[in-house]
Amino acid sequence: MTRTSGHRGGEAASERILITGAAGRAGALLVPRLARPGRLLTLLDQRRPEPAVLADGEDVLLASITDLEAMTHACRGVDAVVHLAGQAWEASFGDVLRLNVEGTRCVLEAAHRAGVSRVVLASSHHAAGFYRYGQHPPGGLPAGVPGRPDSYYGWSKVAGESLGQLYADEHGMDVICVRIGGWREAPHRLRDLALWLSPDDGARLVEACLAAPSPGFRMVWGISRNTRRWFSLAEGEALGYYPKDDAEVCAAALIAEHGEPDFATDPHLNRLGGPMCDVPLGTPR
């Protein structure tokens, strides 16, 4: 493990948060929005985050999430872990097993050994990819429905969720699994009209996960308040997450480019996993 920068803020940190995968796409959206006076963010990845992500008062560690010793060291003195790192799309079974299952186990075990009581795990809507539009109750598909993964990647997220449940039950940790939709700057496909998670709402959700008193084990959807969503926001609201953004602001442009969405019959829209449901298992992306 390599430490490439130290705490530079003049004010003593009252809250310390470790963010794994800080150099990735989600990390680039989240880190600047979590920075605040009195909070020390420790950013862990195998490569250094881009300069635009970094702010005063952050610590950068270069390490692998599969290195239990390094992860345990990184967790010492931390109040909470936000675990974003891992294989981000479909890959070989070996890769998703090593990075998303063994990596998540290492993060949870390191947090336990270091006495960290709260972990926020980045799961994915692909953990439930074979659920269909129309199979949901009026309030939307609940966040905690049993996994129906659409890929090895989705299966690894179900496995990570079950590890979170295990550590919550075995060690009394607070573990919140976020089944993330399309976390990006703006909607860029018709599926995003239902699944988009705006950068600001993503930060609001993580803040709610960090602040909720004694949540135990929870599962929530990582989506914004999209007009065309078919997923429940109740689980997030129970934690204090009240999204403000709506993919509908981009609907006219997306429909002009791709046509009117048909969530009832279009196989790319009426299955939660979309086209991933048709990709042969283990096909790299």
Results as ranks from 00 to 15, higher is better:
Met1His: 09
Arg3Thr: 04
Thr4Gly: 02
Thr4Ser: 05
Gly6Ser: 14
Arg8His: 15
Gly10Trp: 13
Gly10Tyr: 12
Ala13Cys: 02
Ser14Cys: 09
Ile17Pro: 04
Leu18Ser: 08
Ile19Asp: 06
Thr20Ser: 00
Ala22Phe: 09
Ala23Tyr: 13
Gly24Tyr: 13
Ala26Thr: 01
Leu29Arg: 02
Leu30Asp: 03
Val31Gly: 02
Val31Lys: 00
Leu34Cys: 08
Leu34Tyr: 09
Arg36Met: 05
Arg39Phe: 06
Leu40Glu: 15
Leu43Gln: 12
Leu44Glu: 08
Gln46Thr: 14
Arg47Ser: 11
Ala52Phe: 14
Val53Cys: 01
Ala55Trp: 10
Asp56Lys: 07
Asp56Gly: 05
Asp59Gly: 01
Asp59Cys: 14
Val60Met: 13
Leu62Asn: 02
Asp67Val: 01
Leu68Glu: 06
Glu69Tyr: 13
Ala70Trp: 10
Met71Asn: 00
Thr72Phe: 11
His73Asn: 08
Ala74Arg: 01
Cys75Thr: 03
Arg76Glu: 15
Gly77Leu: 01
Val78Phe: 01
Asp79Thr: 02
Val82Ala: 04
Ala85Val: 13
Gly86Ile: 15
Gly86Asn: 12
Gly86Thr: 15
Gly86Lys: 13
Gln87Ile: 01
Ser92Phe: 10
Phe93Pro: 03
Gly94Leu: 10
Asp95Gln: 15
Val101Leu: 15
Gly103Pro: 10
Gly103Trp: 08
Cys106Thr: 01
Ala114Asp: 05
Gly115Pro: 11
Ser117Val: 02
Ser117Pro: 07
Val119Tyr: 15
Ala122Gln: 06
Ala122Glu: 04
Ser123Val: 13
Phe130Thr: 05
Gln135Lys: 07
Gly139Arg: 00
Ser151Phe: 11
Val158Gly: 12
Gly160His: 00
Gly160Glu: 02
Gly160Arg: 00
Glu161Arg: 12
Gln165His: 14
Gln165Ala: 13
Tyr167Cys: 04
Cys177Gln: 06
Ile180Ala: 10
Arg184Gly: 05
Arg189Glu: 11
Arg191Glu: 10
Leu193Tyr: 10
Leu193Arg: 03
Trp196His: 10
Pro199Gln: 11
Pro199Thr: 08
Asp200Asn: 09
Ala203Thr: 05
Ala203Ile: 05
Leu205Arg: 15
Val206His: 07
Pro213Tyr: 07
Pro215Ala: 01
Pro215Thr: 04
Gly216Ala: 06
Phe217Thr: 04
Arg218Phe: 01
Arg218Met: 00
Met219Phe: 11
Met219Gly: 09
Trp221Asn: 04
Gly222Met: 04
Gly222Gln: 06
Ile223Trp: 11
Ile223Tyr: 07
Arg229Ser: 15
Arg229Asp: 13
Trp230His: 02
Phe231Glu: 14
Glu235His: 04
Gly236Val: 05
Gly236Cys: 08
Leu239Gly: 04
Pro243Val: 02
Asp245Arg: 09
Ala247Ile: 01
Val249Phe: 15
Cys250Ala: 07
Ala251Trp: 15
Ile255Asp: 14
Thr265Gly: 06
Thr265Glu: 14
Arg271Lys: 11
Gly273Tyr: 13
Gly274Arg: 02
Pro275Asn: 15
